[in-house]
Design a binder for these strands. Structure first.
Lengths: 313, 313
DNA sequence: CTGAAAGCGCTAACAA
DNA sequence: TTGTTAGCGCTTTCAG
């Protein structure tokens, strides 16, 4: 393997001059540049990224923690992150957590060991306080409102939009609202916000029989439909946690020749556009790119992206 | 930032002894180990991964090239890769290509610069021959049958299963087979195999009006339904390229109170299980983990994973 | 069982 | 404009 020293020797210049032409930095005479470039080409030489990283103390790698790859939420945030990363010349490492706290800790340790320059938690099982402890080792960004925990964040303003959406639901006269969530509201900040908005609008907690947890995919939505149909308490409206999921729900009723209850989705994906049902656009791609920006800025910023209730009825 | 030298100095041992306790390698006296571990703990020290990588000439990073993140195919292969990577202590870098040849070349260059130990192409725009040229710089694995190109691969045996599936379709008496594909068969090896199997079974090329390209999502499937419905030539059976996509297709007909044509899917996802339609299980998760194994083995292996036609009618 | 020293390959401050 | 040299932080051979 040929290295920068070989190029220096063969071209008759020093390593620093070679480094300069490699990085197009500082002055190098045309003569030197030409000769060095000739040798580089002849030897088919490229610099070693790892050595460069070590020397600069920077890897241009960003770690992204995802619980899983299938839910629309993560897909969209990830796409936002990746688009921005590509623009800025960074690489993205996917770190699958499954909400496993030990894995999350492992990723934090890797940040500490400088395996990447920053870490973005699209969601997390570990308490934010625990995560924040690692801030002294490197930049960390979370994708939710950190409230009183001091940690950089990029997130979407959920509650106010949930309130708007649920107020509309209430105005329509619906009373028994089925709620589908990713995780139980005791552990999920997003679910907690949903419940909070519900309480604010309806003045009471939702009926626990009408809350379905662990719903993340189209198929889960379908299964939720089955659950509701067999449930003693039937919803007169369903507040789904994504358009895909809402579509799965709807499908269950259709497949069984049942009346589909009115419902709304989230994420403003194609299904709600095609089928024309109401939804919430959380602007997750923007959240992703904002999270990335915060990550590379290294600053202790908090960015809130407004979301929109899209009323299609 | 404290480093291995600091630990050596503070503990009174040499860096090599410290390195030994860090790596639990070779003999270290209990006394030395205890003292060194005490200092490590006290100083809150962890080794630097980049330095370690440089020294060892290995990063434990694997690059995975994906055209995009939404199609089921990539999701499944990726999950297989990640599961195996996690087991073996590797990290996964996502490299989005969009089938852009320049980006793919860029990724190959990064391999050459040792940014990762190996590169897996789940699919590619560049000709395989071009990709194979980079094998001298590092391990590369592709996820299709490389035929006469000499390059490591892990892929699913498609043609024989396509033939089985299409033969069954033919036996049922269907004649106008709608075919949905990811990309045109002139550029996609997978689509080409579909067409080849079709020719083998039906003895002629499929009607080009019945082939829809650029179908990768549920929504595209829905749109394809619209296309077929407005097409002068209507399919009496549709061979979809995933279960999700088939479901989108079906949905179009249902939403418009039209008779859903018989169809089959691919990937054996939940929709085909729930709705009980035929499908093909390409065992993509296995392809992913096999691809990963080939990547880390460094050998010029070719692994073919058998796929299965699942007849549910 | 331990240590010295030579890498790994590149960057950048400083001197010339 | 170019070169010298001291890092970046760790691994590993070879001697002892």
């Amino acid at each position: 393997m040929t290295n920068i020293h070989d190029i220096a020797k063969l071209s008759g210049f020093s390593v620093s001059t070679v480094s300069r032409v490699l990085n197009r930095k500082n002055y190098v005479s045309d003569d030197a540049r030409e000769k060095i470039e000739a040798v580089i080409k002849q030897m088919d030489y490229v610099p070693n990224d790892v050595a460069r990283d070590l020397s600069r103390g920077k890897t241009y790698n960003i770690g992204v923690v995802l619980p899983y790859t299938k839910h629309a939420y993560f897909n969209q945030v990830l796409n936002g992150i990746m688009a921005e990363a590509y623009k800025q010349g960074y690489r993205v490492l996917i770190l699958l957590s499954n909400y496993d706290k030990n894995k999350e800790l492992e990723f934090l340790e890797q940040l500490r060991r400088k395996a990447f320059d920053a870490l973005i938690f699209t969601s997390h099982g570990l308490p934010l306080e625990e995560i924040a402890k690692y801030l002294k080792y490197g930049q960390i960004v979370c994708c939710q409102n950190p409230n009183n925990v001091k940690i950089p964040a990029a997130y979407t303003a959920r509650v106010s939009t949930y309130v708007k959406a649920l107020s509309w639901v209430k105005e329509q006269g619906y009373k028994k609202i089925g709620i589908m969530q990713n995780r139980d509201y005791h552990v999920s900040a997003t679910s907690e916000k949903t419940i909070r908005a519900y309480k604010q609008v309806f003045g009471e907690m939702p009926d626990s029989k009408l809350i379905v947890n662990d719903v993340t995919t189209y198929d889960n939505g379908y299964q939720a439909g089955e659950y509701y149909n067999k449930c003693s308490e039937k919803p007169d409206f369903v507040f789904a946690n994504s358009d895909d999921i809402a579509t799965g729900l709807r499908q269950y009723y259709l497949d069984n020749q049942l009346q589909v209850p009115p419902f709304m989705g989230q994420e403003n994906q194609l299904p709600s556009q095609i089928l024309k049902f109401s939804t919430i656009d959380h602007q997750l791609t923007k959240v992703g790119s904002a999270a990335f920006d915060v990550a590379t800025s290294g600053e202790d910023k908090i960015v809130c992206i407004p979301s929109k209730f899209i009323n299609r009825k």
